[in-house]
Amino acid sequence: MLEIRNLSVSFKDKNVLQDLNLKIEEGKILGILGKNGAGKTTFFESLYQSQKYNGEILWQNKKILRENISYLETENYFYPYITGREYLSYFSKEKLAKTIELAEKFQLPLDKYVQYYSSGMKKKLALIGMLMLDKPINILDEPFNGVDFEGVHLLYDIILELKQNNKTVIISSHIIETLFHTCDRIVTLENGKISNIFEKDRFEELKHFKF
């Protein structure tokens, strides 16, 4: 279980996150909804141990380590003059054959330099690399941004497979419907606080929720 206890983050005089408490079981998918500036990215960076925070973040009752987590950021950086195939080979040569099969489903030109990819193609490539890490906790920050219709449905399948493999998945999205398709629970983040928790049988209420 991933357990977050009294998580708080402050920058100078501003409280960005305030006493967040959450428990996320293995094999569950949690959605995070909130306006820009609500604290979503700070929350993810705290989980990923790249942000100083107060409180506790525990995995299996022990302090969480970065090696427990894979993190798909909203914007992905790639070295110039690297092909998609070269990028993926850095993660795991043993899994490369299966990964190339997934890249073909995403219609990625693996022998093309990544700097010439569209933003949606870069998102797909970064996602594949993240999956190759095979971590128990997976953070997806706006994974559907810039992804075409077919890619969105392939993403649904990938997220479902993560769930079936007992992975913990945390997703943020401005597109509520994508969270309806994937999540077991959705929380709303407002002014650095969790304002509501919606279980699956209450998702319809979110259609009227104001952000």
Rank of each mutant, 00 (worst) to 15 (best):
I4Y: 07
I24V: 12
L189V: 05
K124N: 08
A103D: 00
K35V: 13
R85S: 13
Q115W: 05
I170N: 09
C183E: 05
M132E: 00
G34T: 15
Y116W: 01
I82E: 14
R5H: 01
W59M: 12
S8P: 07
I100Y: 00
V187Y: 07
I159M: 06
E150D: 02
D134H: 04
K167Y: 02
I82F: 14
G31F: 11
K62L: 15
E75T: 15
L30M: 08
E199I: 00
I171S: 11
Y81T: 15
I24C: 10
T42G: 08
N76L: 12
E142P: 09
Y77Q: 13
L189N: 07
S119T: 06
I197N: 07
S92Q: 13
L108Y: 01
F91M: 12
I170V: 13
S46G: 14
L160A: 12
Y79G: 14
L160T: 13
K122N: 07
R66P: 01
T41K: 15
T99N: 01
G151R: 02
P80E: 15
M132W: 02
I139L: 08
T83P: 08
E142F: 06
T83G: 04
E205W: 01
L110Y: 05
N6P: 10
I171N: 11
I175N: 04
V114N: 10
K163H: 06
L179Y: 03
K207W: 05
L72H: 04
H208I: 12
S70I: 09
N165F: 05
E73D: 09
L110N: 03
R5W: 00
K40R: 11
Y87H: 09
E94K: 14
D141T: 11
Y116E: 03
S92P: 10
Y90C: 11
M121H: 08
